[in-house]
Simulated assay, not measured.
Amino acid sequence: MNSIFNLEGKIALITGGAGVLGSNFANVLAKQGVIVGIVSQSLEKAESTVKAIEANGGKGFAVQANVLNKEELEKIKDFIVEKYGRLDILINAAGGNMPGATIQPDQAIYDMKSDDLQKVIDLNIIGTMLPSQVFLRTFCETEIRKYYQHFFCFGTKAFNESCGLFCFKSGNRQLYTMDGG
Rank of each mutant, 00 (worst) to 15 (best):
M1R: 13
N2T: 11
F5G: 06
L7Q: 08
L7K: 05
E8P: 01
K10D: 00
T15M: 05
G17I: 12
G19E: 07
G22W: 08
G22R: 02
F25S: 00
N27R: 13
V28N: 07
L29I: 03
L29E: 03
K31W: 02
Q32E: 12
Q32D: 14
Q32H: 13
G33C: 14
G33A: 10
G33F: 15
V34M: 07
I35P: 01
V39T: 06
Q41E: 14
S42A: 14
E44A: 14
S48L: 13
S48P: 06
S48E: 15
T49R: 11
T49V: 09
K51M: 08
A52M: 10
I53L: 15
I53M: 12
N56K: 15
G57I: 11
G58T: 10
G58K: 01
G58V: 03
G58F: 01
G58A: 10
K59W: 11
K59F: 13
N66S: 15
L68R: 07
K70F: 06
F79L: 12
F79C: 03
F79R: 15
E82N: 15
K83H: 13
K83D: 06
R86H: 13
L87P: 06
D88P: 05
N92P: 05
N92Q: 05
N92S: 14
A93P: 00
A93K: 06
A93V: 00
A94I: 03
A94W: 01
G96L: 04
N97V: 03
N97M: 12
N97H: 05
M98V: 04
P99R: 09
P99M: 04
D106S: 07
D106Q: 14
Q107F: 08
A108D: 12
D111M: 02
D111K: 11
D111P: 06
D111T: 13
D111L: 04
D111Q: 10
M112I: 07
K113T: 00
S114P: 02
D115H: 03
L117H: 05
Q118F: 00
K119W: 01
K119N: 06
D122I: 00
I125Q: 10
I125F: 09
I126Q: 04
I126Y: 10
T128H: 01
M129W: 14
L130W: 02
L136K: 07
R137Y: 04
T138L: 11
F139S: 00
F139D: 02
C140E: 09
C140I: 14
T142I: 08
T142G: 00
I144Q: 13
K146I: 04
Y147W: 06
Y147A: 08
Q149I: 14
H150Q: 04
F151W: 09
C153D: 09
G155F: 08
G155V: 13
G155A: 11
T156K: 03
K157I: 08
K157A: 11
K157N: 12
F159A: 11
N160T: 03
S162N: 11
S162A: 12
C163F: 06
F168A: 03
F168T: 09
K169A: 08
K169M: 01
G171N: 08
G171V: 01
R173Y: 11
Q174A: 07
Y176R: 02
T177I: 12
D179L: 12
G180Y: 08
G181A: 12
